[in-house]
Amino acid sequence: MLYGHFTLLFIQTSLVNIPENGWQRSWGVAHKCSQLQSLSRLSHQNPEALINLQGHTVVFADHSGMNASGDVMLGTMDVHHQWTKLFQQLPSYQSLWQQTGWLRERISDLLGGSQVIHLEKLGPIQPIAEHYSTLSTFHKSLMSQHLRLHPRSLHGLTMVLENDRSTPSLHEMGHFIIPTSCDHLKLQIFLQKHAFEARKRTLHRNQLQVEEEAVVKLCLQRLSLMGLSKEPGVNSSQMILCCKRLMEEHSPLMQGLHVCVSHFYSVMQDGDLCVPWDWKN
């Protein structure tokens, strides 16, 4: 595929990581190649501008900046001048990213070893500055009150912080979803009460992920697919069910296709076939 070869060439020449899922939207190959070519032209016209970008993971998105995962976002509607300005600011962004890591560690120490994570698929992309502000506010709030949690009592568990939530909850995949303004006594009681269930769900999630990887590999082989992927909104259970049904159907018309499991039917510009995970016969 032209896009794949172009991506590999750019990565090899610029020491920048552009993953297969480094696209905020399901763009076709023409749009992807256009963005890569634009970045490549900038690297040739102004190679010094990309020095700060080396070693980073690049994600093409609606807006430029750095996300909560530390990836560099390049706005697809921005011009080279705006990208260059972002590259100049990357040392500051990197410093902010390192500070978020420190805050996550401190919060983990205060909350029994549980880890604060950010999952893009559970919400919109969060800029690094907003993520830092959320962590900082929550950390200061925790420091003002004394929680009585054993240092390792929640080790291995994860939590997602949300600014617009009033009560804590437990996600079906085992993540605690914690409001930054949560009363800390209620938070402590909630975490202790639901820790066992969170571990069960986390174990189940991990088992599903292992099963998903095996089923996807088998589906690729049996249907002779060129590729098989899914959109972020499709969970492991849905992906497993979809793959098993595709193998039962075993349509020879799918041979050589790249299938993306989604929530809708669509054919992309590069011929990729999008099918909903609960597709109908």
Rank of each mutant, 00 (worst) to 15 (best):
S64M: 06
L223W: 04
L36G: 05
P179D: 02
L74V: 05
D270S: 07
I128W: 09
G174N: 12
R165A: 15
E105M: 08
Q209W: 08
E231M: 10
G4Y: 03
L86G: 02
K217T: 15
L9V: 13
S262K: 05
L273W: 04
L185F: 08
G70D: 07
A30T: 13
E249S: 03
H263I: 08
Q238G: 05
P124H: 10
P232Q: 05
L122D: 13
L220G: 10
K200F: 01
M226R: 14
E120S: 10
Q188S: 13
Y3M: 09
Q221C: 08
L273D: 02
A214E: 14
Q88N: 08
V72T: 08
P19I: 02
L203S: 15
S114Q: 15
C219H: 09
K217I: 03
C242Y: 06
E213S: 15
V216I: 15
H175T: 00
R104S: 12
G75C: 11
H250F: 04
N235G: 10
F60K: 05
L39D: 10
Q45E: 12
Q88Y: 02
M173A: 09
L90Q: 06
Q24M: 07
K85S: 11
H5L: 12
Q221V: 00
H146C: 05
Q94V: 08
A129G: 06
P151D: 08
K140H: 15
S166G: 00
Q12R: 14
K244E: 15
L90C: 04
L253H: 06
K32Y: 02
A49W: 04
L223E: 01
S251N: 09
S169W: 06
R41M: 09
K186V: 07
A195R: 13
I178F: 09
L96G: 03
G65D: 10
T57R: 05
L191Q: 11
Y3S: 14
S181P: 02
T7S: 10
L223P: 06
S40H: 06
S251W: 00
T100V: 04
T84S: 13
C260W: 02
F138P: 02
I18H: 01
M66D: 04
I11H: 05
V160W: 08
Q207P: 02
W102L: 13
K32W: 03
H56I: 07
E162W: 00
S69F: 06
S26V: 09
H258C: 09
L257T: 07
Y132A: 03
S251E: 07
A129I: 05
Y3E: 10
V160T: 12
T158N: 15
C274S: 15
T84K: 11
F60I: 11
L119S: 04
L253W: 10
L241S: 15
T100I: 03
F138I: 03
V16Q: 08
I125C: 11
C243W: 01
Q89N: 06
L15P: 01
P91I: 11
H5E: 12
F10T: 10
E213W: 00
K32S: 04
S114L: 13
P276V: 11
T76S: 15
S40I: 04
E211I: 12
Q192G: 14
P168I: 01
